[in-house]
Nucleic acid binder design. Structure first.
Lengths: 223, 223
DNA sequence: AATATTTTTTAGATTAATCTAAAAATAGTA
DNA sequence: TACTATTTTTAGATTAATCTAAAAAATATT
């Protein structure tokens, strides 16, 4: 059975993400939504993936689908490639963090393993990408980090921004304007019950008002 | 009419190369040979390419095919991308010149124009790739250089190696062994009629015997 | 539990890119 | 020039990846 195709890879990635998020088998509908296709197409693809040697997914009709060990390995490697390319684009080619997703989405399908090894080395074997997401190593191990959402940070406790939950360009661009980039130091001065806003001290200097929506999408690590 | 596909791009590149080489329309058979497909498939592809808006090729049945202005623009841009990626692989990721062709063959199909602009900048807007081939600029202009084959170099005239005609891995690897890399200084000490070999002085130091075949595939520039 | 709603699968069709085999056109040669 | 050989095109088939519409299964609601 031929080398794995881009469409197959993207389905694996979607299934991986869904199963990680919910710990339940991924539904055809949910996969179709991510892939921007229809449930019927997903069913066909699942059948093809489960017919691979070795099989990449386990599925029972109407019961959703999970990745096998082999499928997980492939999905993890894709995520590794995606995040390394994003890092390259930001660190070396001066893209900003809101621009890199779509380009990395294409680059992640380049096959040569040696390329990704060398790229990893060139970048200094980074553990996190420009959005603060962990980059798995060549064996597929992620680095975990005790991080919390800014909404969970206790008042006056100092912390640094280490990542985002929502990585949509519009949110990232808004953060740019607020100077809320990775590494920024933050402290919650006050949580205002009245409108759910948060008074924040940013980099020990400026005060800033953040809505709960923003705080719910920012990961921080206490100092 | 949708974005241009990888298969379409590769056909354009093949046609470009053939027409540049011979100044004649490219034949379906010749294209099929490069594409490793069959003439019938090429005919089908040509019909598709000529139906694009704007049309990418001009063809009359049984008379071969040429690129239109629009087709040439696309082909040139592909060559630009291919050569910039090769340069990146060698200069930044420490690949050797015999390893980069196939990887660049994949990378050249990544679409984002901004990516290639930034890459060009990152590499310092190089004019030649690791094999000495010119890299067209964003407008499609190639830098020409008066270069000759080593077989044409007059006896005792000093010159530097600036490129290769044959860029097959086996030839490039052989050149590595002989220390005949880009920038090496060469002088022809003697052309031996007996066996068609050439006595060369390399980097003002070592003497080296090169066959005519090697000399016919090495471009040099006189000093 | 019976029925209605939603989700998933099946069936059948479409498009891109390829193939083989046969027909048609061009080129080469006696 | 007429015949032969080669090249190109046409015709018809195949596979991957998608679609729509309908059928079947699972889930939710009275």
């Amino acid at each position: 059975m031929n080398p794995i195709s881009k469409a197959e890879e993207n389905h694996l990635k979607a299934i991986f993400t869904l199963c990680e998020e919910s710990d339940k088998p991924a539904s055809t509908n949910a996969i179709a939504k991510i892939m921007k296709t229809k449930a019927a197409s997903v069913t066909a693809m699942i059948i093809r993936l489960s017919g691979k040697e070795p099989s990449l997914v386990n599925h029972q009709k109407h019961k959703g689908v999970r990745l096998t060990k082999a499928g997980k390995k492939l999905a993890t490697n894709l995520i590794r490639k995606h995040r390394l390319w994003e890092t390259f684009l930001v660190e070396k080619l001066n893209f900003s963090w809101d621009e890199v997703h779509d380009i990395a989405e294409e680059l992640e399908h380049i096959k040569a393993e040696k390329l990704i090894d060398r790229l990893d080395e060139f970048l200094g074997r980074p553990k996190f990408d420009p959005h603060g997401d962990p980059i798995p190593d060549a064996e597929g191990n992620f680095t975990y980090r005790k991080q919390i959402l800014l909404t969970e940070l206790v008042k006056n406790q100092a912390a640094v921004v280490v990542g985002v939950l929502d990585d949509s360009p519009s949110f990232l661009q808004y953060l740019n304007k607020l100077n809320l980039v990775l590494g920024a130091k933050v402290q919650v001065l006050e949580r205002v019950d009245y409108d759910g806003s948060n008074r924040i001290l940013l980099n020990d200097q400026q005060e800033q008002i953040l809505t709960n929506k923003v705080c719910q999408n920012l990961y921080v690590k206490t100092l």
